[in-house]
Design a protein around this nucleic acid. Structure first.
Length: 462
RNA sequence: GGCUGGAUGGCAGAGUGGUUAUGCAGCGGACUGCAACUCCGUUCACGCCGGUUCGAUUCCGACUCCAGCCUCCA
């Protein structure tokens, strides 16, 4: 199985080979927890979840780390407004985030580190950077000196010259260079802070990821993922710090960036005011539908959020419909394939995912399998195709429920069954007016009937 | 202004130097008491202008437009 991935560092699609054969280390930037997360934040969680599922098929050991940023000025401001302590506020929204992504079918990473739990390694790293001449202390701050790193700018491919032009940053007077960024900053008594060689303070944003990666995965990792809006300055800075500490060796071998969700022609962002929270969406839609919508576009491209949900619902129904048709009494779902070998998985789906995680093509392959199921006429073929479909579902994190749960929900609605029986009695007596009246009533309640050779079945709509 | 990516049918969204993406929706037919489901068939496409080529949506160049980043951001 040859996996290719688009590496931001080189701007090209490359064959993926882990540094240590058979073992993969992967780190993904998680959210800053100051509020409910919007669906755009769900994209990297879902996309890299699929990547990890794929990697685990091929490599014996995959260590997946996704952080939570729980120290940040936005958290401080939000906590002040909500009246909670800063730690309580961050912890509350961290829990909300985990609940949200779980509903999107995202498996927990192996390690979910918090910035506040890594102050020691952060301080150690800053001391090292000062010691080797890449950082300096000024007025209680410690700053990374950007011109000291000749490779700075190679990730986002911009020169120091270019950055000067567009600079919108107000330059603090204590900076040696306008591009220098904060590794450590002083805290006033009401702000979270830790003792350090530079006084009581807190870490800057970028250093936490570098320190957590180093702590949990080592000086060089295989894959680092995150949103494309993090490439600069966050990942550029992270890259610079870690590289300098490594004595010039890059800390990340493959940089992966997912594209933004757009809504109404612009990036979904709080500052634009066009966000939809995952929590809101979950009130009206199944988490699996949201996941399908997020996977319906290639991860590097922008994705138009607008009508994707209605489309995703119909598309997912189609896959579940094929499973329902193929029902052989087994209660297996995609989860039954969580530890299946490579051979159990449909090749077309695997091939698509191996090609830089082409989830739209993988979904097309899933629909091809579904169509084959509906056309097949012998039981063995149907059974085998059904297994393939479910196995593909495992890779994508879809088809996690039984078809009846998908179409009817968990409620075992005796009332609906009773009225269906009434209607069928009316049909048998050729009282079609009554039969249609019952059907219309049920439809008005969101229950749609389907008369099949094997009897009448139903599903919930909207 | 600089850098990056994009422009595909009603919508979403892959891909390819010549042959069906896929899904949702539409249309016609089969099935049905009528529907729904399903099946069969089918309409609608590659921003604009040049170039390369037997042939370009696909390669090259210019142009137009859009988005992202250059400030916090998934």
């Amino acid at each position: 199985m040859e996996i290719t991935l688009h590496n931001t560092q080189t701007g090209q699609r490359e064959r993926f080979e882990p540094l240590v054969p058979g073992e993969v280390s992967i780190y993904v930037c998680g959210p800053t927890v100051y509020d409910l997360q919007h669906i755009g934040n769900g994209r990297p969680a879902v996309v890299f979840d699929v990547l990890v599922r794929l990697l685990r098929l091929e490599y014996a050991k995959v260590t997946y780390v996704r952080n939570i940023t729980d120290v940040d000025d936005k958290i401080n401001a939000a906590a002040l407004e909500s009246g909670e302590s800063i730690a309580e506020h961050a912890e509350r929204y961290a829990a909300e985030y985990l609940e949200d992504v779980a509903a999107l079918g995202v498996m927990p990473p192996d390690v979910e580190p918090r910035a506040t739990g890594h102050i020691e390694p952060i301080i150690a790293m800053i001391e090292k950077l000062i010691g080797i001449g890449h950082a300096y202390e000024a007025e209680g701050h410690v700053l990374f000196h950007v011109p000291s790193d000749p490779q700075y700018g190679t990730l986002s491919r911009r020169s120091l010259e270019e950055m000067r032009d567009g600079a919108r940053v107000e330059v603090a007077p204590y900076k040696k260079d306008p591009k220098d960024f904060v590794l450590w900053k002083p805290s006033t008594p009401e702000l979270p802070g830790w003792d350090s060689p530079w006084g009581r303070g807190r870490p800057g944003w970028h250093i936490e990821c570098s320190a957590m990666i180093r702590t949990h995965l080592g000086p060089v990792i295989d894959i680092h993922g995150g949103g494309s809006d993090l490439a600069f300055p966050h990942h550029e800075n992270e890259s610079a710090q870690s590289r300098c500490v490594n004595g010039g060796t890059a800390s990340v071998r493959y940089w992966l960036h997912n594209g933004m969700l757009t809504f109404g022609g612009a990036k979904m962002a709080k500052s634009v005011g066009n966000v939809v929270t995952i929590r809101d969406l979950l009130e009206r839609h199944d988490g699996e539908v949201l996941r399908y919508a997020l996977l319906s576009g290639h991860y590097r491209q922008e994705l138009q959020w607008g009508e994707s949900l209605a489309h995703a619902q119909g598309s997912l129904d189609s896959l579940y419909g094929a499973l329902r048709d193929a029902d052989d009494g087994d209660n297996d779902t995609a989860a039954s394939y969580s530890s299946a070998g490579v051979d159990a998985f449909p090749k077309a789906v695997l091939d698509a995912l191996c090609a830089d995680l082409n989830t739209p093509r993988a979904l097309a392959a899933m629909h091809a399998l579904a169509a084959d199921i509906r056309r097949a006429d012998d039981a063995d073929t149907v059974r085998s195709l059904r297994s393939s479909l479910l196995a593909g579902g495992w890779l994508l994190g879809l088809l996690t429920k039984s078809p009846s749960e998908h179409f009817q929900g968990l409620s075992d609605d005796a009332t609906v069954e009773h009225r269906i029986a009434e209607r069928n009695a009316a049909r048998a007596a050729k009282d079609f007016a009554l039969a249609d009246a019952i059907r219309d009533e049920l439809a008005a309640e969101g229950v749609q009937l389907e008369d099949t050779a094997g009897g009448t079945r139903w599903r919930r709509t909207g």
